[in-house]
């Protein structure tokens, strides 16, 4: 019994220790790592956000058709020429239209695809929170037994005996 008491008492220490080790590891782990390392990898990353104009449902990075290879080469050249990711994407938007990028715009009507799920999640959470609120009120109105209730129970018990 004394041992459990001891254990209980020091449990908080375990959690503190845990937090220290965890935060230290996170700091070490998260400090390094920048963006893509080489031009080639930057190209792959950019290519995966551009749709292949000839194939169905694949990005430039995934596809092997001629046009995809050509665009990959072009992106590589533009990267070495020092153009930014957004500049390069714009080139393809100008050439093929908005649907060439796989990432929908965050503004205008298209922006709804980003906002609506967040709103829906928020509303659903609020609805559940409200339900809990109501349940709590219900519970508190039911749970409190008045003196007369106790008396009633005691009386019934006596009678049953």
């Amino acid at each position: 019994m004394a041992r459990t008491g001891f254990k209980e008492q020091w449990r908080w220490l375990s959690w503190v220790l845990m937090a220290i080790v965890g935060i230290a590891a996170l700091i070490v782990g998260a400090s390094a790592d920048g963006g893509p390392q080489s031009d080639g990898e930057r190209m792959s990353e950019l290519a995966s956000t551009i749709r292949c104009p000839q194939c169905r449902g694949q990005s430039i990075a995934e596809s092997n058709v001629a046009i995809a290879r050509e665009i990959r080469g072009d992106i590589r050249n533009r990267i070495s020429a020092g153009e930014s990711d957004d500049d390069i994407r714009q080139v393809y938007i100008d050439r093929y239209g908005r649907s060439i990028v796989l990432n929908p715009d965050s503004g205008g009507f298209t922006g709804l695809v980003w906002i609506v799920p967040v709103l829906a999640a928020g509303l659903a959470t609020a609805a559940i929170a409200l339900a809990f609120q109501r349940w709590r009120i219900e519970a508190s109105s039911i749970a409190i037994a008045a003196d007369e209730d106790h008396e009633l129970v005691a009386k019934l018990r006596r009678e049953r005996r």
């Binding site: 956000t49 749709r51 908005r98 649907s99 796989l102 990432n103 929908p104 715009d105 695809v113």
Partner: peptide
């Protein structure tokens, strides 16, 4: 289904892909 919705409402083609 969002590309279909956008096409129906705005008559514009967009893609929603992996990054989204």
């Amino acid at each position: 289904v969002f590309p279909l919705i956008v096409e129906a409402v705005q008559d514009e083609r967009i893609s929603v892909g992996v990054p989204y």
